[in-house]
Design a protein around this nucleic acid. Structure first.
Lengths: 206, 206
DNA sequence: GTCTATAACCTGATAGAC
DNA sequence: GTCTATCAGGTTATAGAC
């Protein structure tokens, strides 16, 4: 081992760089040249490791989905905590992820829009079905027990993701349209509002 | 005039075709060849009329924004109508537009995300500032009068657009994830929920 | 105004030397 | 494994004939 890398390290380094670029610019507007340049290697090396751009994206997409999804599992099942507190914790978990990587919401929406198959494949191959099932069942149980209002589960996801993602989807528009607003100040007020809205959707005695 | 078109007609026809393609696939993934083929002319003709792809997009974008925005003006100012009814009418106006052209929400978000300057330029050049100002002022007045809760205007837009756009942004995911759901049935329930959420955000005695 | 032809460039992907 | 060289195809844009 003369260099600081062996093949496995290089592969991981490529994936990490590809991940960042795909998240930032999306699949279509990220070129193999971009990824190679960022990693400091030649284009053919990428094809040696992944053969095609699409296979490369698939290898990266799973890792992105994982960074997007898993931190909620424990929270939602803590049924001793009141709904309001669990909602707040989940929102904070997502916002932590999104503030670290503000392009993630747009990336997810864009790529799911382009081809939902990628997401479904990843869900299957990483065995996330049971994870989703657990969350769905948990909600359904609390609805059946009268602890939550009975509404279609899709509405919970629409409301949650719609409200959480919105500030990131419209990123540069807010400062451009209303010059003297800080994201932090807006978020500090927006967070309790999301909780209010979820409570309004799900809480019987609101 | 031998043909059925004069230059102005052809220009309009090009713009109409470009509009549909841009909305459907976005700026980056729509090529000049696509637009030429759809119009039934050669590529250089496009450059004769618009010189560059970017200038062409600017010419089209204004027209798209207009189809997106103007139908709300009259509704929101009908202050004799209760808030709930006005909200419903505005939602219906948007949904009418979006059902006619389901790609519009993604197009707007994608292109504003890519470059908010395009939107700001169009707002200025079509003199939509006064239109936006009128809506903002109307809301501010009703807040000041205690008819609506006082919240940041951004929150109204976040909530409204986030909830209205969400089903269209996640289009193919819902049928793929939950096979036996019809968009119409879901929407019929989703509509009153949006109104509820806006009411929860803005209505004092909710 | 509309065409053909072409310039200049970028893309993903592969072959073959080392 | 990593490189150079190259292919076939796509892109925007322009020059010049008609």
């Amino acid at each position: 081992m003369k260099t600081s890398h062996n093949s496995k390290d290089l592969e991981k380094e490529i994936i990490e760089n590809a991940k960042q670029l795909f998240i930032e610019k999306g699949f279509a507007e990220t070129s193999m040249s971009d990824i190679a340049a960022r990693t400091g290697i030649n284009r053919p090396v990428l094809h040696y490791y992944f053969r095609t751009k699409d296979k490369m994206f698939q290898a990266v997409f799973g890792s992105i989905v994982l960074s997007f999804v898993p931190q909620v599992q424990d929270i939602i099942l803590q049924k001793d905590l009141p709904f309001r507190e669990r909602a707040g914790k989940i929102i904070d978990a997502y916002y932590q992820t999104f503030i670290d990587n503000p392009c993630l919401p747009m990336f997810m929406i864009r790529e799911i829009y382009r081809d939902p198959g990628h997401l479904l494949a990843v869900i299957h191959e990483l065995q996330l079905e049971q994870y989703l099932h657990k969350i769905s069942e948990s909600l359904r149980e609390e609805m059946a027990a009268g602890l939550l209002k009975t509404v279609p589960l899709v509405f919970v996801f629409y409301t949650f993701y719609g409200l959480v993602a919105m500030p990131f989807l419209s990123r540069d528009l807010l400062p451009a349209a209303i010059p003297d607003t800080s994201f932090e100040a807006t978020f500090a007020l927006w967070r309790p509002h999301i909780i209010d809205q979820l409570e309004n959707l799900l809480y019987p005695q609101a």
